[in-house]
Design a binder for these strands. Structure first.
Lengths: 359, 359
DNA sequence: GATCACACGGAAAAGCTTTTCCTGATTTCA
DNA sequence: TGAAATCAGGAAAAGCTTTTCCGTGTGATC
């Protein structure tokens, strides 16, 4: 212990199964069996092995196990989300699903830099992860992961990809739009404006279409002139309100494409002395707590259930690893979180409403 | 592709060095030497090996390499940050520093659940990572990682820990407070209120002390009655402004303990027709873009340079791995990001000002 | 008392790569 | 031409664990 051979940089070397064998006075294989409850061992031997292992603080080396089993029980998550707003909930969901299967998840940050992403993938592949999940939404479908030879299953969660053979989990943006529209209409609103993000986002088009469906199904008139697109920012929300009011159209509600936009809109309305929700009701999208709860009044908003989406991703990844061949685009339901920006609304409308027809 | 032998779960098995050897007609060792540029090989042989490896898409198995080298070239990052607001910048910084050294970083999400954290650590240890970095700030110093036998270096980045032997990287909150105070004073403010978070956060106390230092060094009066603590929320920022104004004290500036608080304060001031920065200047803390830039006017705020903190963490982790024995608390400078909530201020004050005396 | 079955635990191989050591073959020099 | 030096590449071990296959020793049975 205190021998002179402990050099400056001495760090205790983790004990191997060999050390345990020696300490317990048995052979390597016996230790393995003893610890794993396999083979035929006397209970007394097993106990001796266990206590030796405990005493030494033995922890099997995953590298050796993985090498042998040809499974690492690990999946990699590649994200490009610089704020973590979306990836963290997805990560947590994945961990929920995979933790049960005793698998670990590691997040690598692509930072929207293809070279970096490439490097991460190289590294994950070299480490022989059992699967790779790609996340983080962009405007255009992202290119499928290159330099992948099919030796490992890939799954896109909250990411679109231009590859029909890929498995892709996305929120049901259309359903989310319907949910918002339906909620507003049930709250008695009939002239609903839609202030949203850049139209090159597929999600933007889907949310708009969802709103349109809700409106039409309720027998109301769809007014394309009340849809205006801009950036994903509060400033745009404010400007959009200015523009809408300038047109002198009557509106009694605004469905916003994101909570940031919604917050800008609410602020702009309050600045002008227009009451939310009494004069104009507002519904947001994202349920980004930090924004939605701080808005005055707090935002009623659509939640994409990213945690659940992550959980589904984890579950499906397990399938994929086991050889399941699912592919295509799967849409997961959004739900509505009712706060105050829309009146108290009909509370039942929360939940999986996207699944049932609105008729 | 469509042959009947491709069973349901068929997934191409990655080629091993053995396959390459066979394809190139040489021995295992020769392939290794050929690919790694070691040993004595004819250039022609080397080329043959390389081309065979290329053709087969050979990628060395990190598991085997790591097992042999007793190094995985991987560090684990444990976070408890549910929003990723802090961990993602830190992660990116770490990746910057470690990427250069050809090492990977994996983030695991502790989700503030000790059991889960434990499990992650177990897993990282079993995978024999070369180091573990712990992140995410809390009110109280967190307990040091248990179940760690010293076999792997630990570093706390943006996390306090109750263990004097640990290496701990933290932002210089005191310097940040000084920076804010100094900026306000140079902008001509003399009666500065401080609206901040819960006092059980060490950072809260440091920021306050920094402000106090700046005030005293400029020969102004420190007024403890102008310091009020609450939660980290916009609502608290709004309420605090109401309270401050109710006391009828004259104030011409507010230094807020976070951008969220600052935003609430600015909103409350505007609601009352008080001009920011003309009547009251406001400085925030965090430089959380999404909040600071959306505030009207945009917030001048202290940036903790978390990316740089992460980079430093990565660098120091490399030292630790190489046997360096650094320990203790290291404070890294904050900087000031000037926007509009404080007038244009003296622009020079940006940067590493925390390092130089303010006299 | 000899044979059989069974319980227990050891030996060894496999999984993949790197590195050390060693053997032939070739070249160099006397 | 023979000895020494150099070159090229093969063989094998190490790193750690699991699992299969065997070889003991014990008790039971005839």
């Amino acid at each position: 212990m205190t021998s002179p051979k402990t050099s400056l940089s001495a760090r205790p070397v983790p004990p191997t199964i060999r050390d345990v064998a020696q300490a317990a006075g048995v052979s390597l294989g016996t230790v393995s069996k003893g610890l794993n409850g396999t083979g035929q061992l006397r209970e007394e031997t097993r106990a001796r092995v266990r206590s030796a292992a405990e005493r030494l603080g033995f922890r099997p080396n995953d590298l050796a196990q993985s090498l042998l089993r040809r499974r690492t029980f690990t999946v990699g998550l590649i994200s490009t989300d610089r704020y973590g707003r979306f990836s963290i909930p997805v990560l947590e969901g994945i961990e929920d699903a995979l933790g049960t299967a005793r698998m670990s998840v590691f997040l690598c940050n692509g930072a929207d830099d293809p070279a970096r992403e490439r490097q991460h993938i190289e590294s994950l592949l070299a480490k022989r992860v059992d699967g790779i999940i790609v996340t983080a939404r962009r405007a255009d479908p992202r290119p499928p992961l290159d330099l992948v030879d099919g030796s490992v299953p890939i799954l896109y969660a909250f990411a679109q990809v231009a590859d029909v053979d890929a498995l892709c989990l996305l929120p049901d943006d259309l359903g989310g739009g319907r949910l918002a529209g339906d909620h507003l209409i049930r709250a008695g609103r009939a002239r609903i404006a839609h202030v949203t993000g850049p139209v090159d986002f597929e999600a933007v088009r889907h949310r708009r279409d969802g709103l349109k469906q809700a409106i039409m199904e309720h027998g109301l008139t769809w007014r394309p002139e009340l849809v205006i697109s801009g950036e994903w920012s509060e400033a745009w929300g404010r400007e959009a309100v200015a523009r809408l009011l300038a047109t002198r159209q009557t509106i009694d509600a605004i469905f916003c494409g994101s909570d940031q936009i919604a917050r800008g809109a609410v602020d702009a309305l309050r600045d002008r002395g227009i009451a939310v929700p009494d004069d104009i009701a507002v519904v947001g999208f994202d349920n980004w707590e930090i924004i939605a709860a701080a808005t005055r009044p707090p935002l009623t908003t659509v939640d994409m259930n990213l945690h659940e989406l992550g959980r589904q991703a984890g579950l499906r990844m397990l399938d994929l690893i086991d050889g399941g061949g699912e592919r295509g685009i799967v849409r997961l339901p959004c739900s509505l979180v009712v706060r105050a920006s829309c009146g108290q609304g009909d509370k039942q409308n929360t939940g999986q409403a996207a699944d049932r027809p609105l008729s």
